[in-house]
Design a protein around this nucleic acid. Sequence first.
DNA 1: ATACGATTTTTTTTT
DNA 2: AAAATCGTAT
Length: 697
Amino acid sequence: MKEFVLQDFASDKPFRIDYERELNPEQLQVVLHGDGPCLVLAGAGSGKTRAITYRVAYLLERGVSPEQILLVTFTNKASKEMLSRVESLLGSYPTGLWGGTFHSVANRLLRMYSTQLGYTKNFTILDEEDARSLIKVCIKILNVDTGERRFPSPGVLHAMASYARNSGQTLRAVVENRYQNFYELIGTIEQIVDLYEARKKEADSMDFDDLLLKLRELLFTRDDIRQRLAEQFRYVLVDEYQDTNVVQSEIVRQFASVHGNILVVGDDAQSIYSFRAAQIKNILGFPETHPNTKTFRLTTNYRSTPEILAVANATIHQNKDQFKKELSAVRGSLDRPNLVPAGNSAQESQFIAQRILALRAEGMPLSEIAVLFRAAFHSQALEFELMKRDIPYEYRGGMKFFERAHIKDVIAHLRIRNNPHDEVAWMRVLSLMNGIGLVTAQKMVEQIKRAESLDEVLSLPLKVPARAQTGWLALGKMLYKLSHAEMPSDLIRIVTGGDYQDYLRAEYPDFMDRLEDLEQFAIFAEGYTSLQTLLDEVSLSADFGAVREVDPGFSLGAAEREDRLVLSTIHQAKGLEWDAVFVMHLCDDKFPNPRALTEAGGLEEERRLFYVATTRARKHLFFTYPITSGYDTLQLSQPSLFLQELPSGLLEEVRLKRSFASTATNDDLTIVLDHLGERAPTVDVSRMSFLRGVEEL
DNA sequence: ATACGATTTTTTTTT
DNA sequence: AAAATCGTAT
C-alpha cells in the first residue's frame, strides 16, 4: 500500500534545473522531500509559489506523468501563473496536468460522471445572479408576503443556503447563528430554499456549491470512482489551503486516499474567505487529520522592505487567534510607508494620481503599481481622476465581463440551446420580450418544462397571453435559427444580429459599446468548437475580460498596451505583488467593513485582509483616507482602526499641501480636524451648519 | 392582473 | 450599476 517515492525516481536523466542553486534551503526541502502528507506554512512573500512550481517541475523531471499530478489553486489567475512558470522551467507545456480551481476541477470530473448523479452531461452552471433570479421565482411561486416585515432579499437567502451547505450546518443553525434577525422567518426561508433546490435539479442545473458538493457525494458514495480517481492522482498539491472549507478538504482527502501524497501550502495569517465557510482549522489541524505529516516552514520574506514588514508584523500581532510568526526581511531599507489623510475622496484620488505620475517619472512602469481597496465601489472617485489624467489602468473586481447584462442575455440564449431545461435562462430570455414580464414568463416556463428538446418546445401548442404573442413569435424564430447552427461564435452572431440588437438600441444609451462587447465575445468564442466548453469557461474561469482595460481615448500600439496601473479589491490581489502599492479609503466606516464586524471573528478577518494588502508591496506603500465623505451631508471619519492601532513611528505622515485642496471648505475641514484631535466623534452635519462650526472655532 | 417606466436606494469580499 | 419601490398604462 505504502509507496516509496524514491523507488520511482530511478531515472538517471540529468536534471535540467539546478534546484540547489535556484532555491533556498527551506524551499529545497519541500521540493525534494514533499512526498507523503506535507504541510507547508509559508508567510507572505516567502516564495511558496516558487516552491510549488519547482516541486511540480521536479516530479515531471523525475518521470511522473502529467496526468498523475493534480494542482489545485484558488483562482484561475494563480493556476495560469503556476502552469506557465512550470512551462518555462521545463521548456515545454505539461500537457495533461490537472490544474485549476476547485470548482473547475470539480466541473471537469462532473462532466464525466454527472449521469450517475441524475444530471445530464449538459447540465448548466448557475452563477450568483442566476441563483438569485431562481430564488426570486421561488418566492413568487410560494406567494410569500415579503412586504409585511423586512424580508431577506434573494441574494441574502442564497448566501444563507450557500453558507449552510459549505459549512456542513443545517440552514436552521446558520440562520440562528448568523442571521438572528431573520430567525423568526425560518419556516418560510426553509420552504424557499427547498423549492430552490428542487427547481434547480429539475432544470438540470448546478450552482457553484453543487459543483463541490456533488463531487464530494460522488467520491463518498461511489467507491469504484473514488478508487479510480485516487489511483490516478499520485501527487495532489493544494495552494492557499487556509481558504478551503470542509467540503474542499474532504474532496482533497479522497483524492489522496490511495497514494497519500498530499502537499498543502498556505498561511493562516492570510485567511480571508471565511464568508465562504473557509476554515482555518483545515490548515492548523492538518497534521492531526493526516498522520505522519511533515511540516515545512518558509519564513524568509523576499518581497518587501523591512519598513513594510514592520507594519505587517505589527498588524498581525494584534490578532489573538493566530500562530505567532514574524516575517524577516532580506531586502534593504527604504522609506517608511506613508500615511496620507486627504480632505475628501476627490483629494485622495488626486493625491494618488499625482503620486503615480511622479513614480512613473522616476522610471517605475505603471504595471508595477497597484491601488487596492476593500470594496469595488470605493474606487469610483479614483477612476474619474485617472480618466481625467489619461492614466491607463486595469480594473479587477466588481462586475466581470461575463456578468454584464448584455453578455448574460446572449449567453442565456446559448444556454437554452445547450440545455432546454435551463429554467433560469428561459426566464431571462422570455423577460426580454415585449409584453412578457416575470409572471407571464414563469407561466410559460411551466409549459416549456414538459418538452424534452428545443425542437419539441418550438412545436408545443403554448398558451400565450395576447399581449405576449408577438414577442413569443419573434423568440420562436430566433430559437429556430439557433437550433440549426452549431459553432458557438455563429450562435452568438445569430442572437446579436437579430431582434436583440433592436432591444439593445432601445434600452441602453451606450448600446454602441455594448454591441462592441458582443462582437468581442463572438471573436473570443471563435476559439471554441464546443458550446459546452465555452459555457463552462464563461461561468468558471471568466478570465477573458474579467479585467476591464481602460486606455486613454487614443489608440495605443501593441507594445505600449502592456503598461497599465492595476486597480483591485484586496481579495483579488491575493498572491500578487507590486513595487508600489496604494491602499485607499482606509477610514473607520469603510475598512474594517461595518457589516463584517457584526460577524464572529469578523474583526480579525478584516485585519488579515489589511495584512494581505500591506504585504503586497515590495518597495513603496501608501495608506490614504478621506477625512470627510458624503454629498449633501458631511460626514467626518476617523482613520481606520488598523491605522490607529499601529505603534507610532512606523508610518510617515504626509501633510497635503494647499494645492491639493479643491475648495476652501475642505481646507478648513483639515484645520478643524486638527483641532478636534484624535478622538473626534463621527458626526453628521449639514454643510451649512458645519461651516458655521468652522467659524466658531 | 400584469407590464413597464421613472425614481430612489444601496453597494463586502468570490468560485 | 443594479435592485428595490412606486405609480401609471394596458
